[in-house]
Design a protein around this nucleic acid. Structure first.
Lengths: 345, 345
DNA sequence: GGGACTTGAGTTACCCGTAACGCTGCTATA
DNA sequence: TATAGCAGCGTTACGGGTAACTCAAGTCCC
């Protein structure tokens, strides 16, 4: 089935050089536009490069110069979350514009997966790493410190990053949402999410949210943390579970917009009127929120800007330009129409 | 700011070997579990590996063995499209399970971007490539043929792939949707999409759709191809544009579900009743479709299975197991509630 | 006790580029 | 005319591993 496929018929620089009747070094110089050769020689070499379909072997280049590669390892928890997918997209675009390549790592929100991936990706001598989240396993931390390459931690702002950091303050974003809901007169609220791990941004948001609610005399009646993905359907049945088991909840805050949409659909399917009967607040401001009739109350995070900033910080560091170690990318609360308009107690 | 960071303080195998008082080769054997050493030697080497925090340099390994790496290049048009994001996710998970890494390439739906990326990624000696789409630039084709590595073309089924192929027949999926709508009595339909390029799957679907409609005496009154991304908002304003410029459209077929949702929202915002006043049909079956009150008429593509299959075909080929060259992953038309229930002319 | 085999190493060459240096022959200048 | 300078190109060594080979010492069997 694949006799020829296996054979490695790669053309090396030496073959190009021989075909052109020059030394390997001269061919190398031509290909790197280094100068030190005649126009005639250049033409001959380039002709052979074309004829033989020569593709340089970058492994050898990296190897020869004892440099790092143009790989940048990028770890992302999962791509089911649209926001992360778009962060990845903007990172990759920016890195690509600078001639760097993304080596992907999906950590499934676990530090162990991240550690395994870090070990592997470091063995490829990447130019740098971009990691989602500020929490890493002890062994991961040790490897990262020894790696001696630029590292950007994204998503969760961190005043003392391993190296560099860009993101938002999740505690504050939860806190602001809590205060906003309190300001609208909500006192008994619920939460639906999926994190059962304190070491992540969603938990941090929840902490901030609780602090704001409880600090103002309200109460987070129930926090539901499902063992599922943070997507539409869990939002749907999570809401059913929350409202079915607890009375008096006036408003529900969700881990993200996808879950909030699920909750919104659940409420509408049960003929509850949002926001009259119940308030719904999401987080992340998914694109779909802009077309749905009832604007979802949410928190906007400039995720494209976040990805771009991460890639830019990486590139700045790689070219030794001065750059701030941390950058707060900011967020914006979006009032929306899925919570009551003003205090109506 | 980063004096130490620049310095390359990597520990090499030679240093480990010296510290352990053995030759480089012996240390290499220990690390590869090759056998041919005493338990005592093994322990000594492993102890030094730990002490020095040695991480193997895989570039060197690949280089030395003149083998391919454990990289697999994966090209995806964009991650704004949830379906592609999830295909990528399932590919990466499966590859990861086999100890391979994904090098990402976002082609932005252009063959030129794909070609550039292919050139770069091939220079890293990847074990194989997974490419979205069956169309490639002439130079890309040449490089791919010379590369001598397994290639899986995904998404768009292709009876004569470069090497292997997994996907669905997009023409058929469009055709089936057309026939379905005809069967419900629709005769004058519209289309809203974003592709202005024949060389892609969306165009192929549209062709199939038109064939079915026109073959049955109906007509595709207007095909609107926006210069925008295939997301919610373009679906919204595209529908406005379509319905504003053309009378008598009974049903609209969209390039994908995101656009269809945008259209649905537009219709509802204008107090049009779906499906009584107008029918809406999407494609791709986004997760959100499962929670929205009115089930969107769509075509389900098993995208997770698609990604898995692609990775499995790649791995099978890499380990020289027999594997079918092409695999039709199938699709399923989802009737939904956004088109009329039966012929009601 | 001698030859064959096994065990546990070490040695050498090589993968494909690039840095550093060397060499040749021509030109410009004093 | 001597010499410095430089364009143009070649030679050598090297990076971090691994394949293939070699080799010494111990074991086994007849």
């Amino acid at each position: 089935m694949s006799e020829k496929i296996i054979k490695n018929n790669k053309v090396s620089l030496l073959e190009v050089a021989r075909a052109a009747g020059v030394s390997k070094m001269t061919a190398s110089r031509v290909l790197r536009n280094e100068g030190g050769y005649s126009e005639q020689t250049r033409a001959k070499v380039m002709q052979k490069v074309d004829e033989l379909g020569y593709l340089p072997n970058r492994l050898a280049t990296v190897f020869a110069g004892d440099k790092t590669s143009t790989f940048v390892g990028v770890s992302i928890p999962d791509l089911g979350n649209e926001v992360f997918a778009q962060v990845l997209e903007s990172i990759d675009r920016k890195l690509g514009a600078f001639g760097h390549q993304t080596v992907l790592g999906l950590t499934q929100h676990t530090l162990q997966e991240e550690e395994n991936w870090i070990r592997t990706v470091l063995s490829w001598q990447p130019a740098g790493l971009i990691l989602t989240g500020r929490y890493h396993s002890p062994r991961a931390l040790e490897m990262l410190k020894n790696a001696g390459i630029p590292i950007v931690e994204i998503w969760d702002l961190n005043s003392s990053p391993l190296d560099m950091c860009v993101g938002i303050n999740h505690f504050d974003s939860g806190f602001d949402m809590g205060r906003y809901l309190i300001g609208l007169g909500y006192r008994h609220v619920g939460y639906v999410g999926t994190s059962h791990d304190v070491a992540n941004a969603a938990s941090t948001r929840l902490s901030g949210f609780c602090k704001a609610i409880e600090g103002a005399g309200g109460s987070v009646v129930k926090q539901l943390c499902l063992h599922d993905t943070a997507t539409f359907y869990p939002g749907f049945y999570g809401t059913e579970q929350l409202l079915g088991s607890t009375d008096g909840i006036e408003c529900v805050f969700y881990q993200n917009d996808a879950m909030a949409f699920g909750g919104l659909q659940y409420c509408e399917s049960r003929r509850m009127v949002v926001p009259d009967d119940i308030g719904i607040a999401g987080w992340g401001n998914l694109p779909i929120a802009s077309v749905v009739g009832k604007r979802l109350t949410s928190v906007h995070v400039p995720h494209l800007k976040l990805g771009q900033a991460a890639a830019e910080m990486m590139m700045a560091r790689l070219s030794d330009e001065p750059i701030a170690r941390t950058r707060d990318i900011g967020f914006r609360l979006i009032p929306g129409a899925t919570v009551r308009a003003s205090d109506s107690r």
